[in-house]
Amino acid sequence: MSVRVAVVTGGSGGIGRAVCRRLAASGYAVAAVSRAAAAYDDDRITGFHCDVTDPEQVAELAGKLDSVAVLVNNAGMADTARFEKTTVDSWDAQLRTNAMSALLVSQAFLPQMRAAGWGRIVAVASTASHVGARYTTAYTASKHAMLGVVRALAAEVAGSGITSNAVCPAFVRTPMTDRSIALIESRTGKDGEKALASASPLGRLIEPAEVAGAVAYFASEEAGCVNGQSLVLDGGGLQL
């Protein structure tokens, strides 16, 4: 029996690396996908270069990999602006990166899962998939769209042995969040991490390993009855 493969987009980032390590520890051969194929200190993880907003590059990636059983749509970006200052370029970039990539990559690997009669597709979304916040118009719209992709796909694969779910964390301790912290501090002079941590009752940032744990559950055999769901990681602020 061939080793099952897990594909993780945004595999070079903070959450992506944690997810790659967790799935590798679960016995998967992991394809860590990013715009700049990164190096990993685990021979079970292989870096692949791919711009997941480019249909041709995604198709080429799918042609290189087989036996894909798990797909984690983790690629993402964030930009902030007042509603009136949200630009078309920012809107397009975030919708393409956060939502369209999930569509393209899922379309590319779904045939392998259908042929095998088993698969797990997990999106790393956000609490912004459920609620809005100031200065996040494009980001919130893109994460709502990402969750919409997850739910529509779940309806189509129901009963097939394939599931589609999402994890929705609050702010996670990653380089992307570090940039947000620096921006807050430069604009307000306040403690940026404290400001972000106070946005959820947990009172701290989520750790990447905590997100990876939630992803690993959705990717497991035991989660075969869970489909079309979003798991919020924020300490209890959103009770959906």
Rank of each mutant, 00 (worst) to 15 (best):
136 T>R: 15
8 V>G: 07
158 A>N: 05
209 A>R: 13
240 L>R: 12
128 A>H: 15
192 G>A: 09
186 S>C: 00
68 V>I: 05
172 V>C: 06
190 K>W: 11
227 N>P: 05
161 G>F: 08
207 E>V: 02
174 T>A: 04
215 V>Y: 10
8 V>H: 03
23 L>Q: 08
196 L>P: 05
142 S>F: 11
70 V>C: 07
41 D>Y: 03
69 A>C: 06
169 P>M: 10
15 I>T: 11
56 E>M: 00
110 L>V: 05
77 M>D: 12
1 M>R: 13
185 E>R: 14
214 A>H: 09
144 H>A: 11
182 A>V: 02
137 T>C: 13
152 A>M: 11
152 A>F: 04
158 A>Y: 04
60 E>P: 00
186 S>G: 15
133 A>W: 11
95 L>H: 11
133 A>G: 14
174 T>Q: 04
168 C>E: 06
30 V>K: 11
3 V>W: 09
91 W>R: 01
185 E>I: 02
140 T>S: 14
23 L>S: 05
138 A>C: 08
206 I>G: 02
230 S>H: 05
140 T>V: 15
13 G>I: 04
21 R>F: 01
73 N>P: 03
171 F>I: 00
128 A>Y: 14
232 V>H: 09
96 R>L: 14
37 A>P: 12
137 T>N: 10
215 V>E: 08
117 G>V: 00
13 G>S: 11
184 I>F: 12
8 V>E: 06
88 V>F: 13
176 M>P: 03
29 A>N: 03
238 L>F: 13
59 A>T: 13
74 N>R: 08
93 A>H: 10
28 Y>A: 03
122 V>I: 15
40 Y>F: 15
42 D>P: 03
61 L>H: 08
35 R>M: 10
227 N>F: 09
49 H>V: 11
233 L>P: 02
53 T>D: 01
63 G>K: 01
63 G>N: 04
151 R>H: 13
110 L>T: 08
33 V>W: 02
86 T>L: 09
